Simulated scan of single mutants.
Amino acid sequence: MRITDLVVHHRRVPLRMPYSSVIRGTVDEAHVTLVELVLEDGSSAWGEAVSMPAVTGETPGSVVAALNGPLRAAVVGRRTEDLEETCDRVERSILGNGGAKAGVDIALHDAFARGLGTPLFRALGGGHGTMETSITVGLGTPDEMAQRANELVKDGFTALKLKVGHAIAHDVQRVEAVRQAVGPDIRLRLDANQGWTAKESVRAVRLLEDRGADIELIEQPVAARDLRGLRFVRERVSTPVVADESVLTPQDALEIVRQEAADILSIKVQKSGGVRGVLRIISIAEAAGLTCMIGCSLETEISITAAASVVAARTAVTHVDLDAPLWLGASPVRGGVSYRGPVLELPDAPGLGVSGVLPEPSA
C-alpha cells in the first residue's frame, strides 16, 4: 500500500489542571501535532509529534516545518510494507528533530500493523495489552502536592511520580508531606528534571533515605550532559538513578552504559524519533543488564498507544509512566488506549486502533 500524502493537524488542548515542573514551568494547555499518512485506498494511518524545546530543541513551528518539508518528501510514494527502509529514509532526511520524526515513525508503524491486520503491540511481539501506569504530581507546595497525591491514591493509583528540582529543603518537605499523606505502601518516584547539581542530588537523596521516605527511584537529578555528575550521584546513593534527558539516541544510551552513569534508562518515543528509536535503546539496555522506564510528555492517545505497544512487547521495560491522556481536558483523538484508573488498556484493533481525529473547534 503506497502513501499518497502527509497531512498535519495541529490542536491546542486545554489541560484538566495546570501542569508544573522545573523544566517547563507551569502550562495549562498542550500543543498537539497529529500526523496523518493518507494511503492509496483512501484510509489513513496516524502519528503524533510533540515539541519539547528544553529537551529536543523543537517548537510547534519547527515540528510543522519539518513534517511539511523533508519528512513528507521521505515518505510520500513509499510502500507501507517497506517499514525498515522507509524509517531509514526518515532518519536520514533531517538532523535531530526527534519529535517530528516520531510523528512520522509512529504513523509508519500504524500503517504497517494495519496492513498485517493486527494491533501494533502484537506486531512487535507483545502478548497482552494491559499494564499499570504511574501518574505525575506536579510541582507545588507540600500541602498542595500531598492533597493531590491523596486524591490520586483514592482513584486507585499505587505509583506516583513527584516533580522536584527546586531548593533541596523545600523538595524534602514536599516528598515527606506526600509520604505522610499516602502512607508506606504507595511507590514514590522523584523527577528532578535536571534541577540539582551532583552534590545537591547526593545530599537530597541521602537525606530522604535517612528519613525513611522510601523513594523507588530518582530521575535525571543533574544536567542532561553531565554524565560524570550522574555517575557521581549513582555511586553515592542507594536509590536507583534514572537517566532521562541524558538519553535521546541509541548513541547516548551507549555512552551512559560505557560510563556506568545510570541504573535505569528512561525512554520516550517523542525524544528518540519514534518506535524504532526506543526499541534500539531498549536493546542496548538489555545487553548491558539495565532496565528501562518508558515515559511521556503532554501527548494524546496516539503517541501513548505507540509507547504502550513497546511496553507490551519488551520485558526490559519495568516501569511505566504513561499518564499523559489523563491530563487532557478533551482529547482530539478517536480510539487508542483507554484507562481504568491506573490500568492502561491497548485496543484489540489493527495498528494503533485510532479511527481519526475530531474536527478543530470553531473559534
Rank of each mutant, 00 (worst) to 15 (best):
E36I: 00
A49R: 00
E58Q: 09
G77H: 14
V55Q: 01
A45S: 12
V38C: 01
V35P: 00
V75I: 15
V55G: 13
L71A: 04
S44R: 11
V35L: 01
P70K: 14
G61Y: 11
T33M: 02
G42D: 08
T59D: 10
S62Q: 01
N68W: 01
V55L: 09
L67K: 00
E40A: 14
A66I: 04
T80M: 08
L39I: 03
V38G: 12
A65D: 09
V55C: 05
A73Q: 14
S62N: 05
A49M: 10
S44I: 00
L71C: 04
L39D: 03
E29T: 11
H31E: 12
V75T: 06
T33I: 10
E36A: 07
S51W: 02
A65H: 07
A45F: 03
L67S: 11
V38F: 02
L71R: 08
V64D: 10
A30Y: 04
R72Q: 05
L67D: 02
T80F: 00
A74M: 13
P70H: 15
V63T: 11
A74P: 03
R72V: 09
V35A: 03
R72M: 09
M52G: 03
G61F: 12
V63P: 13
A54H: 10
P70L: 12
W46D: 02
P70I: 07
T56Q: 07
G69M: 06
T59C: 07
E48Y: 01
L67N: 09
R78Y: 00
S51H: 13
E36H: 04
T80I: 15
A65Y: 06
S43E: 12
E40W: 08
G77Y: 13
L37G: 04
E48V: 00
A73V: 02
V63M: 07
E58K: 10
E36D: 06
G61I: 11
G47R: 05
L37A: 12
E29Q: 12
V63A: 09
P60L: 02
P60C: 06
A65F: 05
W46C: 08
G42T: 07
H31P: 06
A45L: 05
R72H: 07
V64W: 02
A73E: 08
P60A: 04
R78W: 05
L39S: 04
S44K: 11
M52F: 07
T80A: 15
G61D: 09
G57E: 10
S51G: 06
H31W: 05
G57L: 07
V64A: 10
L34M: 12
R78Q: 13
E58V: 13
A74N: 06
G57C: 06
A49H: 07
V38E: 06
V64G: 01
T80E: 14
V32M: 06
T33H: 01
A45W: 08
E29D: 09
V63I: 15
S43D: 14
V63K: 04
A45G: 04
G47Q: 10
V55T: 13
L37I: 08
E40P: 01
G57S: 08
A74S: 15
G61A: 15
V64E: 15
T59V: 09
S43C: 08
D41Y: 09
M52N: 03
N68R: 15
E36C: 04
V55A: 12
L39G: 03
S51A: 15
V76A: 06
G42V: 14
G69W: 00
V55W: 13
T80Q: 10
E81P: 02
V55N: 12
R72C: 08
